[in-house]
């Protein structure tokens, strides 16, 4: 489903060399590593926001290396969520659907379905200003999943949340990914979070992505 083939990425003085890994369809993969090692850079390259120097990025069996972000059909939740300040919660959920020219009825149906799944139906009319951390996280997740992407990228989605909300969102993530079958790549520093969610765990060390074996969610 997601495949990095000998990818080299340069970002200023920083360089990731010859990165290769693959994640199968429907798997929940977690990428760990210390700050400044290039985890976000890998996510940005995967969704087309950062160009790579060499190698190939394969998604759903297609070489998307030179595709613009809009064509890759990837749901992306950045670390700071980057919600749209002038949009309401409802507008966040329908944005990608409007861009794809869906009919009003289809949009309404999908928005209601998403809102119910995320537990934010009561927030639909609200502007994003004043939402709590957990509520904002749910809106960002809904926005990313609204157009039913086959790949979901999460950049430290739980790092800014209190422990109670963190557990809530963690359960929500597992339920959402199980129900939708979306292939997920999740970045985190937190080993407990990785153990609770991951089907597969990768670690980034010295510019290389290495799979950790024997510590999957099933094992723990």
């Amino acid at each position: 489903m997601i495949e990095f083939q000998n990818v080299c990425i340069r970002a200023g003085d920083f360089r990731l060399q010859d990165i290769s890994f693959e994640i199968s369809s429907g798997q929940y993969a977690v990428l760990m590593g210390r700050t400044g090692r290039g985890k976000t850079t890998i996510l940005e390259s995967l969704c087309g926001l950062r160009s790579i120097q060499s190698g190939k990025i394969i998604i759903r069996g297609m070489d998307v290396t030179s595709w613009p972000p809009a064509d890759r059909e990837i749901g992306y939740v950045p670390q700071d969520l980057a919600l749209f300040p002038t949009f309401s919660v409802c507008e966040h959920l329908e944005f990608a659907l409007r861009l794809r020219g869906f009919h009003r009825n289809q949009i309404d149906r999908r928005v209601n379905e998403l809102a119910e799944m995320l537990g934010i139906t009561h927030l639909l009319k609200r502007q994003i200003e004043g939402l709590s951390g957990g509520e904002s996280q749910r809106v960002a997740l809904g926005r990313a999943l609204s157009f039913r992407p086959s790949v979901l990228l999460l950049d430290e989605p739980l790092s800014a949340l209190d422990s109670e909300t963190r557990e809530e969102i963690q359960n929500l993530l597992r339920t959402l990914t199980d129900n939708t079958g979306v292939t997920t790549l999740h970045i985190t520093h937190n080993a407990d979070e990785a153990s609770a969610l991951a089907d597969r765990r990768f670690h980034i060390t010295d510019g290389q992505v290495v799979e950790e074996t024997g510590k999957t969610a099933e094992d723990s």
Binding site: E44, C47, G48, L49, P68, P69, A70, R72, I74, G75, Y76, P78, D80, A82, L83, F84, P85, T86, F95, A96, L99, R100, R143, A144, S146, F147
Partner: peptide
């Protein structure tokens, strides 16, 4: 204005022009 919002808009299906007009300009 946070440029990441425009980046996210592009992953949702916007061209750069649409991201400018629909996300950056209203802000």
């Amino acid at each position: 204005i946070n440029p990441r919002a425009e980046d996210v808009a592009r992953t949702l299906g916007c061209t750069r022009g649409q991201a400018f007009l629909q996300i950056a300009l209203p802000q």
